[in-house]
């Protein structure tokens, strides 16, 4: 398996290109999302999820800790679930997942778009949609 050995160049000698940065960004945001989800699950358990929510309802809450995600459940008291803390966590998750996702979508579509101007439009359109999604999402999280 000698061909699998990685090069032992330091980051300073290799240089940090945009691709290298996005490679690291994708992995760091993946771990950050695991952190957000873990926080959501632990918070849900502290707030009494084991008596009032199903497994999938806990997952839905943990993925985005938005008040709307627990509205239609059997929770007797929704107040602790609707706080600035949980809205902040939801905003963090939205922006982390959104930026991770828009990069992923652009990378996937690049594989099917051979021309330079197609690839440019791929970037403009997807980043534009992401900006709208982020604004609408933040509006929902903070006004629901």
């Amino acid at each position: 398996m000698s061909h699998l050995k990685s090069r032992k160049l330091s980051l300073a000698k290799r240089g940090l290109s945009f691709e290298m940065f996005m490679w690291a960004f994708t992995r760091v945001t993946a771990l950050a999302m695991y952190g957000f989800i873990l926080l959501g699950v632990i918070g849900a358990l502290i707030m009494g999820a084991q008596h009032h929510l199903t497994f999938v309802e806990v997952l839905r809450w943990a993925l985005i800790t938005n008040p709307g995600h627990v509205e239609s459940t059997n929770l007797p008291e929704i107040a602790p679930w609707v706080s600035s803390f949980w809205r902040l966590i939801a905003s963090g998750m939205l922006l982390t997942a959104g930026s991770h996702g828009v990069h992923g979508v652009i990378v996937i579509l690049d594989d099917y778009l051979p021309k330079d101007n197609q690839r440019n439009w791929n970037r403009y359109l997807n980043m534009g949609i992401f900006a709208l999604v982020a604004l609408a999402g933040l509006y929902i999280i903070w006004t629901a």
Binding site: G68, A97, G98, G101, V102, G104, V105, I108, I129, L132, V133, A136, G137, Y139, I140, T143, A144
Partner: peptide
């Protein structure tokens, strides 16, 4: 991984816009 990622991106985009419309 690609199908899952693309499926999520599509779902989350539609879901956020439809929730906004609902609101």
């Amino acid at each position: 991984h690609r199908i899952g990622g693309a499926g999520m991106a599509l779902f989350i985009t539609i879901h956020i816009f439809s929730t906004f419309a609902d609101q």
